[in-house]
Design a binder for these strands. Sequence first.
DNA 1: GTTGATACCTAATACTGTTAGGTAAGGACG
DNA 2: CGTCCTTACCTAACAGTATTAGGTATCAAC
Lengths: 190, 190
Amino acid sequence: MTTRTPLTRARLATVGAELADEVGFEHVTASEVARRCGVRVASLYSHVRDADDLRALVCLLALDELADRASAAVAGRAGAEALAALAGAYRDYARAHPGRYAAMRHRLDPATAAASAGPRHADLTRAALRGYGLDADGETHAVRLFGGLVHGFVTLELAGAFDHSDPSPEVSWEWSLTALDATLTGWSTR
Amino acid sequence: MTTRTPLTRARLATVGAELADEVGFEHVTASEVARRCGVRVASLYSHVRDADDLRALVCLLALDELADRASAAVAGRAGAEALAALAGAYRDYARAHPGRYAAMRHRLDPATAAASAGPRHADLTRAALRGYGLDADGETHAVRLFGGLVHGFVTLELAGAFDHSDPSPEVSWEWSLTALDATLTGWSTR
DNA sequence: GTTGATACCTAATACTGTTAGGTAAGGACG
DNA sequence: CGTCCTTACCTAACAGTATTAGGTATCAAC
């Protein structure tokens, strides 16, 4: 036999992420991950503390992956364009990888969270907002408004909440981002 | 012994909802619900199809309960005031009953969803938006914008995403709702 | 007073999560 | 060259959860 890929935390994260996208994050199970790695369940415990730690791995991978994409999306853009690109990166990622997107809402312990790509997300949003000339507090409000709007819209859309009404969510998405830009432009002049 | 409360779907929903608020919706287990009802697990299966059906029960209860509160909140109000009251009802409910709030994102099969209080939520939002004089499509966009913003903000806040930055989320919340009102007012004049 | 429905039970099975301890292979070192 | 340690996996056992099958007690109705 060819030497099979050795088990690592990184590999577990990848396999877990693929599984999450296929069956949903809430159904990511240690047993199934082990099965896909061609290994017995017990062997996982040399690499992860417990099942929760395994899920945290997927969470971290998703945070990282999405931070990279978001970073690429805002690079070289400013103002409304940067905002739309950033929001689009989130939405596209959620649709391409629903399981990983859900994984990001997994509660991490504070230490892990601090060391994760989580802060990068906040930084990226702040960077995208730079052009609006907000003061420190205003920027924080804007980060929260942006985060809430994007996350909420994407979550509801993914959950199928928009499936039974008429105009395409695409249009609502554009309108929402336009409105957000207008709002922030207004804030900057106060 | 006093006649113990007989098991009904309603009782299972209540017990499940309490459990959800205590330990989180994702940890609502048939075993624990049975334990709290003073009954063996197998006995649940006379009332629910499977564990997923049990969780759906909690979801339906939450949808209903929150629809009632939302309804009371918007009664007798209009415009910005109605909008803020409706949004506040969601936020307050999420903070008082995080487990039930999480339960509402449980995927229901289409038939159950249609018969649930879900549509009432959409109707309530539409009612709260009436004062803005939007056309049909505009109203749909507004419902989605409102839903996304409120749900996203509340979810992130509950997840602790706002815990490590300075101004109180309260202020961001006010700002966001004010911005939403201004946006919709602007939409109506187009 | 048998019948039937209702509401609960025990028992058995399968799967997930977790811990404890065993083994095989490969490099380091005498 | 043989032994020793480490690494990376294994088997075995056990607890908890989900599910199904089939049994029993109670009670109302005919």
